[in-house]
């Protein structure tokens, strides 16, 4: 299709090693998070993005520390990729006082304003207009900041998607919309409930935007398109809408084994797993096996350490219950 971007690595080898490490951290973190569910350290629900790490890693590498991430309930990877340490994220999943939000948000609402992670939103499509608002603020205050908003293919059929895309285009806002198309809207194949083949790319023209479809399992390709879209936003040339093709290796959420997906499809995408794929690329580029093993051991040690630190966190007490409903820190609605 026209406007399709292909991989054209613009990163140097040091950056590529960092990209590998980042993807690996996201992978190992989420594998551990899954184990922690099975051990009942993590309650409630959780949505893993195992298989989709290249998108979070590639974008985070292209963003400035002052740029903003708006993520969905499938937001562990996007939060960690911006530099949030593993310990408070694990602790948040476990509902501990050393959690990123002291246990008040949970897995679906990871937020770290200090790292530009402006929230993970669990109502489909809601954060697209909110990202527009942050972008408007940057435009008004002339701060050069860019908002990057990640969402799934299931978000493209809700009204907020269309309102936000039109609004961003009309106001020429510095926002980059990233559709992570993992082919499945919860338990239903997105193509069965969507009027166009490419849920985001095929709709870009409706908002006067270029149609951009990329291989979302190639961190270099992601970095490349992220760099150009963020530069465009920063230059005042308005929003972009990027569709990144990818696949989640697991089900929609903790409760879903993902059995509805054909085995052949799963096998096809497992062969395109972004993490081993990127490892192979680094080997081909001359990085030694020893160096990669050292990175892998380091990441696993980091995950182990963070797990234990998180488990050591306190259980939230009543002091937190009524806190911070309001800006003055209180929860009081009457005198």
């Amino acid at each position: 299709m026209s406007g399709t971007k292909v991989a054209s690595p613009v990163v140097d080898l040091t950056d590529q090693i960092s990209l590998y490490r980042c993807q690996l951290e996201l992978r190992k973190f989420e594998e551990r998070a899954y184990d922690l569910f099975l051990e009942n350290f993590v309650k409630g629900t959780s949505h893993l993005s195992i298989g989709q790490e290249a998108i979070a890693a590639g974008f985070a590498a292209a963003m400035r520390p002052t740029d903003w991430t708006f993520a969905t309930y499938r937001g562990h990877a996007h939060t960690l990729a911006r530099g949030v340490p593993m310990t408070p994220v694990f602790a948040e999943l476990m509902g501990r006082t050393n959690g990123l939000m002291a246990g008040k948000g949970g897995s679906m609402h990871l937020t770290s304003v200090d790292h530009g992670v402006m929230g993970s939103y669990a109502i489909i499509g809601a954060h697209l207009p909110i990202a527009c608002g942050a972008a408007w603020s940057a435009q008004y205050r002339k701060t050069d900041q860019v908002a990057v908003c990640f969402f799934g293919d299931g978000s493209v059929n809700i009204g907020a998607f269309h309102e936000a895309l039109n609004f961003a285009a009309v106001w020429k806002l510095p926002v980059v919309f990233v559709c992570e198309n993992n082919l499945w809207m919860e338990y239903t194949r997105t193509s069965e409930v969507t009027a166009v083949a490419h849920p985001a790319a095929d709709r870009a023209s409706a908002y006067g935007l270029e149609s951009i479809l990329i291989d979302g399992n190639d961190a270099d390709a992601v970095f490349d398109v992220a760099t150009s879209a963020i530069a465009r936003a920063r230059a005042g040339d308005g929003p972009s809408l990027i569709e990144a093709l990818t696949y989640r290796h697991g089900g929609h959420s903790r409760a879903d084994p993902g059995k509805y997906r054909p085995d052949a499809e799963v096998a096809e995408w497992m062969a395109k797993d972004p993490v081993p794929r990127y490892r192979l690329r680094l080997l081909e580029l001359g990085v030694s096996e020893d160096e990669l093993i050292a990175i892998e051991n380091d990441v696993i040690a980091e995950v182990d350490r963070a797990t234990e630190e998180a488990k050591a966190g306190g259980i939230p007490g009543e002091d937190l219950l009524m806190k911070d409903v309001w800006a003055d820190g209180s929860g009081s609605w009457r005198n």
């Binding site: 402006m118 809601a126 909110i130 608002g133 940057a138 008004y140 309102e163 609004f167």
Partner: peptide, 20 residues
């Protein structure tokens, strides 16, 4: 704005959390 109430209030929220 366009007739887009979700965009209007989403924009207000995003702007409020970033300094306006």
């Amino acid at each position: 704005t366009p007739i887009s109430e979700q965009a209007i209030l989403g924009a207000a929220m995003g702007a409020a959390m970033t300094g306006l």
